[in-house]
Write a protein that binds this DNA or RNA. Structure first.
Lengths: 245, 245
DNA sequence: AGACTTTTAAATGTCAGACAATTAAAATCT
DNA sequence: AGATTTTAATTGTCTGACATTTAAAAGTCT
């Protein structure tokens, strides 16, 4: 692990990069303790604050964790699926909000990915996954449910569908797409009328998954996508009309 | 933006969180300049090194960039698709290498996602995408190609296929799955014989995409997945046998 | 007046040294 | 032996300073 003190890049960035490479390259294994900050400072010939900045960069990516006290220090973190989810959701959310991604584009991606999961879910879903889906459908029919709660339940339903595929890599990939869409979906405030249609789609989906019928699930997702996009177009049009009066 | 000095969490982590929330919540918009480190230190009632650690955390996530000099400072970064790709690839790679994800699981996820793109790609691919795919197929037939170069070309081919869908969100999601698989794929050193089979699949795929035939593309991907998994199983079996002698 | 050069000031990048807080292990005592 | 105290290592934070970079302001020359 070496750095180039004459490089224009920040020393802390270089140090973080060197350690990151060591982790990715397998030179530092999970739960291994890094040298203490003082030792790292010595090794790289920099001051402790500089080393600390480097370590914070790595901590921000969940690559390391730190513990205080004797026999404390920085340890290589096992990147859990949960951590990865969280990061992906943050990144995806920002990506969508900062890059003027159209609703249609985001929607297309989300449903394309979800359709990829559906056949596997139809094959492998457990009773648990089905129960979650049914429970969320039930919740979505409660009259007093706020729009936010309805959207959250919507996410939970689709999450269960995706998790039904029992493939953590797929779940991880989908988490970003589905959850990052939520702010956009929230923009489309669902009226009481449209909730009924969505519950119908969800019921059809749950039935198909329960029956192990991939093609029906696929078709239901297809129509749900159409419906969602139409709904979005109407909401946009209504807003535009309102803005012009 | 406030923090709780009595919280057990590191101050720098709290400050980073507060600023991150401000960015995600839209209180800080793209390219807006954050207060100077001294001002932030004053605002949060902490020292400048602590503020700097917080800023480095955000910089590690590409949420901000910093500039030195007069009228310099920290600016909210537009999270580009490129930045997001890079982060996703790093995260996905670590996730796979640290969590004992089976080859089958990763493979299933990758092809499921890719199949989600194929129909869109068949519909919308440009001449450019097709040309890239053809060029990579051609490269894959060069006799002197190293295994690493073959794998890289394989990734480039599938990347072009995915990009053909012309949906940046999909491309972003897939980038992680496809590129993170590369180390695993490299483990399966392709022999000269298996290269021919893979080139045949690629040709079939390119033809299907060119003809706009989604179902043929889907079927080709299906068989390529089968083939890849069989190949992996054989390689593993051969290794196990060798280890037992 | 206009173009070029120099100065200045603001900001980040880095360093040194200190102290506080935490924690596990070692030492001590009962 | 077991409980308690001490100790030492380590991260977390602060203060103050200097270096470096950079844009803008001031000054100078034509």
């Amino acid at each position: 692990m070496k750095i180039d003190p004459s490089s224009p890049a920040d020393l802390s960035a270089q140090i973080a990069g060197a350690i990151r490479d060591a982790i990715i390259g397998g030179d530092l294994i999970v739960d291994e303790r890094l040298p203490s900050e003082a030792e790292l400072a010595d090794h790289f010939n920099v001051s402790r604050p500089t080393v600390r900045e480097a370590l914070k960069r790595l901590a921000a990516q969940s690559l390391i964790r730190t513990q205080r006290g004797a026999s404390g220090g920085a340890f290589v973190n096992r990147l859990s699926f949960e951590n990865a989810y969280a990061q992906q959701i943050t990144t995806s959310t920002l990506l969508l909000s900062m890059n003027a991604v159209s609703f249609d584009t985001a929607c297309e991606a989300r449903f394309a990915l979800e359709r990829a999961c559906a056949p596997l879910s139809a094959l492998r879903r457990t009773a648990d996954h089905l129960a979650t889906m049914r429970a969320e459908i039930h919740r979505q029919q409660q009259p007093g449910l706020t729009d936010e709660a309805f959207c959250a339940s919507d996410v939970a339903f689709h999450r269960a569908l995706v998790d039904g595929a029992s493939n953590p890599v797929l779940s991880y990939q989908l988490a970003g797409a589905v959850e990052a869409m939520q702010p956009l979906m929230n923009m489309i405030t669902f009226t009481a009328r449209s909730r009924g249609a969505i519950v119908a789609f969800h019921t059809e989906l749950a039935d198909a998954i329960e029956a192990g019928d991939a093609s029906v699930a696929d078709s239901a997702l297809d129509r749900l996508e159409d419906y969602t996009r139409t709904l979005a177009r109407d909401v946009m049009a209504a807003r535009a009309a309102k803005a012009n009066t």
